[in-house]
Amino acid sequence: MLSVAFSSALKDFVRPGRIITWFLIAVVIGFIGKLWVGFQPTQSVATYGQVMEILGFRILALASAVFGMQVLSAELEQKTVVYLLTRSISRPVLLAGRSLASFVAVSGASLLCWFAIGMGVLGPRAFQTPGFWMDAIVLLVGVAAYGVLFIFVSLILNKAMIYCLIFAFGWEAFVPNMPGDLFYISIYPYLKALTNHAPVESTKKGIMDVLSGQVTDLTVPVTASWIVLAGIIVGFAALGLWVFSNKEYLPREEAE
């Protein structure tokens, strides 16, 4: 039944219109990367890292929020959740199948952008660039980490998309630049630690450093990052399965 839930959801998530949309986003991002490296041609590898941090990982968070909401929130909004919840498929299996489908969709969108950034900034030599392939692995870890978190939020809160976007584009974008250790309560710094991109050399910090969370020199040890990310993935996945198995879900208007 897991495969049925998975394939059924994947057909919904990966429709031609959506594929075209994410493909166009990737093309635009690749083009931006190509323009970007033109401003600092001597630091192409560092620029690649900067573009990945500013755009690549934001696209990952955006795609996670968009497809994460498709797992349950969209069904509640469209009032079609009643059909799903009266099938002879257990709730944990249903959630697992639909979540996996959303992870596949997010992975597709994120890896498309990663590839476009690599080609735009580095060209074909991206494949030989140190850290390029590692970024793909980190993106996949990010898919799972953002995915389980956002899906969990959608299981417990109405209008979860707003909270997820505020987290991804507000909290996560600026907390790494703030003094103190608030950045521990986020996902991006751990992913950033795993990628270990070289910073762009510059005489003073600018907006790009703010957006890529490089104003302060706070770092997280790589081992700790793996452990925290694994904890987030396992913890929120388990919590999500438990909540979905026990909580009542009614079409949105009726629930309010």
């Binding site: 049925v4 839930a5 059924s8 009032k79 009643v82 002879s88 498929i89």
Partner: peptide
């Protein structure tokens, strides 16, 4: 269960919808 809500995944055809619901019945 035939619910009173008049909602469907609108992009599907009636046949696809029934088939998909049926598949999820195992």
């Amino acid at each position: 269960f035939c619910p009173d809500v008049d909602s469907f995944p609108e992009h599907l055809s009636g046949k696809e919808f029934v088939l998909r619901m049926g598949r999820m019945m195992g």
